[in-house]
Computed example of a mutant assay.
Amino acid sequence: MKIKTLFFGITSDLIGENQLDFVIENNLSIKDFKQFLIEKHPSIENINSYAIAVNEEYAEDDLILKENDVVAIIPPVSGG
Rank of each mutant, 00 (worst) to 15 (best):
K31F: 07
N26R: 13
D69F: 03
A51K: 15
T11H: 04
L6G: 02
D32C: 05
I44A: 03
I38E: 01
I15Y: 06
E57Q: 10
G16S: 10
E67I: 03
D61M: 05
I24R: 05
I38G: 03
F8Q: 10
G80Q: 11
Q35L: 11
V23N: 13
E67A: 08
K31A: 08
I30E: 00
F33V: 03
T11F: 09
F22Q: 05
I73G: 03
K2N: 15
P75A: 10
E25Y: 11
A51D: 11
K34I: 06
F7P: 02
K2E: 13
F8E: 08
A72S: 14
D21I: 09
I10D: 10
V23E: 15
D62N: 13
K66Y: 09
A72F: 00
L65M: 10
G9D: 05
P42T: 06
P42I: 12
Y58T: 03
I44T: 05
F7G: 04
L20P: 02
A59V: 04
I15W: 07
A72L: 00
I30P: 01
D21G: 06
L63P: 02
F36V: 01
K4T: 14
I30Y: 01
E39T: 11
S49I: 14
L6I: 12
E17R: 15
Q19A: 12
K66I: 08
E17H: 14
I24M: 09
L65Q: 00
K66C: 13
N48Q: 14
K34E: 05
I64W: 01
D62C: 02
N48R: 12
I30V: 15
E67V: 07
Y50N: 10
N46I: 06
Y50H: 15
G79T: 12
F33E: 01
M1H: 04
H41R: 08
F36S: 01
K4N: 13
A72M: 00
D13Q: 15
N46L: 14
I3P: 02
D32V: 06
L20S: 09
G16Q: 11
N46K: 13
K31L: 08
N27G: 09
K2T: 12
L65E: 01
E25M: 13
V77H: 06
F8I: 05
D13A: 14
D69N: 14
I38L: 04
D13L: 14
E60M: 07
M1E: 09
I73Q: 00
T11C: 12
V77A: 10
T5M: 05
L14N: 07
I15L: 10
V23L: 11
I74V: 13
A59N: 07
S12P: 04
I74L: 15
I52N: 00
F22Y: 15
S12T: 13
Y50W: 13
D62W: 01
I30W: 02
N68C: 07
F22C: 01
N18C: 08
G9N: 05
S29A: 11
L65H: 00
N55C: 06
I47W: 05
Q19L: 09
A72C: 03
I10W: 01
S43M: 11
E45M: 07
N27H: 14
I47R: 06
G9R: 07
Y50Q: 08
P75N: 13
E25P: 09
S49D: 14
P76R: 10
L14P: 02
L37T: 02
V71R: 00
A59R: 00
